[in-house]
Amino acid sequence: MLRYLLGRIAGALTVVVVVSVVTFAIFQLAPRLTGANMAFYYTGKSTSEAQAAAVAQKFGFDKPLPEQYWTFMSGIVAGRDLSDGVTEVRCPAPCLGYSFRQNRPVLEMIGEAFPVTLGLTLGAAVLWLLFGVAAGVLSAVRRGSVFDRLATAVALIGVSVPEFFTGMLLIYLLTSGPAWLRLYPDGINYVPLTEDPVGWFAAMVPPWTCLALLFAALYARLTRATMLETLSEDYVRTAWAKGLPPRTVVGRHGLRAVLPPIVTLVGLDVGALLGGVVLVETLFSFPGLGRLAYRAITSQDLPVIMGVTIVGALLIVCANLIVDLLYGVLDPRVRNAR
């Protein structure tokens, strides 16, 4: 088990390094391809020629790429002194870059946005797991029943209706819809959990619903298919042959075997969402990582884009690592094989 663990961690670290190199390379390449001055991506279009030259000099755009990469990476560890040609700033370690547009270290912005995304993702995950898995199991057990058909239809709608549509519909109905549905007459506004837990929860419910709808549908489909397959396994037949009641056969023997694939998927989905729930956050104007990235892209704020990308990649890698470890816990065959 220990060797399995160490192997996985080493693998994860390698992936992080590769991702950082690729990210770095892409953001080096893009300005070259568009022919724009790289400095503009740091300070904005209104930058003067002289200022741009100063930025280029300070950031060392003329230096060989490996050296620039090294400077960027060592900045994460040691911090960096940066300049936009007008002001000198100290970006303390760990430094993921500095946004001269907003005059703040990127990491500070990410740190502020992350809890929003975390709350959104985890809350939605709880919802979609509860409803998706329950619906999937019931569908599988009562295959072909009215419930199964209804769940299939609802899931189909859930999968095919885009998030922005359900999101906008929700916002419209809850803020300016019919009076009995107008639960948020003052709009759905994010409140930090630490300030007002009840307000936080109330604000979270609509975006949770919007996110969970899509995923619950996907998970219901997956659970139904996996459960059907499991229920036809020999060991489930053995469970019936013992004289166990249906509840135990499905709930203990069936569900236990469905768990590993579901846990894997949850890990990967949550990992991916943690990097930013762009659509939902933007729609609801929640200040999470997704909206941060979206704004950075529209305003071409390169340091922020790079920072969010690397953090997002890191989160996905972490999620993968956790999934791998959980798999070892959930599947004794994997545990023993290492």
Binding site: D234, Y235, K242, G243, A257, D331, R333
Partner: peptide
């Protein structure tokens, strides 16, 4: 269900797939 396992029991053809792996 009362009879299965108690009065009637079965040993299946393939013991690896007939035992729950987890």
């Amino acid at each position: 269900r009362r009879l299965r396992g108690a009065e009637l029991a079965m040993v299946f053809q393939d013991p690896l797939s007939a035992l729950h792996p987890y």
